[in-house]
Write a protein that binds this DNA or RNA. Structure first.
Lengths: 234, 234
DNA sequence: CGATCGGTTGATTTGCTTCAAGGCAGGTGG
DNA sequence: CCACCTGCCTTGAAGCAAATCAACCGATCG
């Protein structure tokens, strides 16, 4: 069973055996990070972080104290592949659930890209995919809260399926309602009510830590979700 | 006086005389596009568009009919430099004001990047800057409407200054309130009231087509704006 | 000269926030 | 093993920011 990074980057195009092996080596020496901890040392732009398990996010605390999450890092996701053009961006990266994270010297990744065309292509694919997703989130922000949350669930299901961490219609999802709120930009109280309404209309079934989507196509239609922006294979 | 593209890409790093000349050649053969017209032919991924004058935007019409603008294209901005990894994204690009636009075969741009390292670097800088801006817009979306509009004005001022199209504290800005509304994700009626309140508190002074900002630092503080995410020189 | 587009204003409604409690489960220390 | 946290979820009531609905105005233009 391949590591999450290889599984993830396979969506960027073909990777040779050598390239897969090189990527696999990056995933050794992982460390555990508890939930609700920052992954990256502030201002350390020399290291790229790779999530191997768990869910992390990129976020910022606004002046009024609210936290805004602008993207999720799922297993196989690299963080800040290409250093911000001018200095460190003022984004933090932190865990939402307990995570396993590998730290990769940026220079080592750059070397790999230089010598392996498939890896080079994959890294550029990552940036384009992040851009595409950010725009989709922007569009999502102008939908009502229930569709926004539904859209988020659709994305998480598909992305986790892409790295074999979700079934056809259910995921083991341990995000708190506070996390969902900071992602969707609404209050956690309202998230609670939105979830109840989604459950009531049969769009989702949520067990303890399990999100089940009885009719995926129906939820996607409700959320106006089209997985194209994730640039996954197939 | 250099063309907008050269002025813009100068922020990405040094460009040799040869590179500047090569960029200048791209700006010949511009066409005029009236306001409220799409620039790109749907699904034509073979052409990169370059805005030479006027303001255009990337947008999408959501299912409920609302238009969501996710980025602005100002003079010197290229559109879709790197083709979406998998097929055409479902974004439209259209003018907000009358524009002058040059169409550049993607292959020609790729050739330039191959032969001119400075241009290659500049093109990668563009993508990173777009990503950075998209994330900033996401964060901006969780601020109240008045700060959101203020943030937008701050960005436009700085970006237009970067291509010598704005003074120290005023811009010739011909965006309609409807355009602002679709950018900020609020109704145009509310935009109207927000503008009145910004005027009342002295944060902006708007003449007919002129936006003046009496105290730029004050507006930036109000909007929690830090130009770092635009990756401009200096 | 009507038509259209952009801006403005008031009245009403609503989606969401905020405030305030209370409940339940898991984890910890006595 | 129980007592007590603390984090997360839930619920109700009240308030507010922004949407919606509905006019009207002024400028520009064919």
């Amino acid at each position: 069973m391949p590591d999450p990074l290889t599984r993830r980057l396979a969506h960027a195009g073909h990777l040779s055996e050598t390239e897969q092996e090189a990527l696999r080596e990056l995933t050794l020496n992982a460390r555990s990070v508890a939930a609700r901890r920052d992954i990256a040392a502030p201002l350390s732009t020399e290291t790229v972080h790779l999530v191997l398990s768990g869910i992390a996010c990129r976020y910022k605390i606004l002046l009024d104290g609210t936290r805004r999450i602008v993207s999720y890092l799922l297993p196989g996701d690299l963080c800040d592949v290409h250093a911000g053009a001018s200095g460190a961006a003022d984004w933090s990266v932190g865990t939402l659930t307990p995570c396993s994270v590998a730290d990769i010297p940026r220079e080592r990744l750059a070397d790999l890209a230089r010598t392996h065309p498939g890896i080079d292509r994959a890294l550029r694919w990552i940036t384009l995919t992040e851009l595409s997703a950010a725009r989709e989130w922007l569009a999502n922000d102008s939908r009502p809260a229930d569709r926004r949350i539904a859209h988020l669930f659709c994305e998480l299901l598909v992305r986790l399926q892409a790295v074999d961490l979700a079934g056809a219609s259910s995921v083991d999802l341990r995000l708190s309602q506070v996390d969902l709120a900071d992602t969707a930009g609404i209050s956690f109280v309202h998230v609670n009510r939105v979830l109840q309404s989604l459950r009531a209309s049969g769009l989702i079934v949520s067990g303890k830590h399990m999100l089940t989507i009885p009719d995926v196509a129906r939820l996607q239609a409700f959320a106006e979700f089209d997985s194209g922006y994730l640039h996954l294979a197939q």
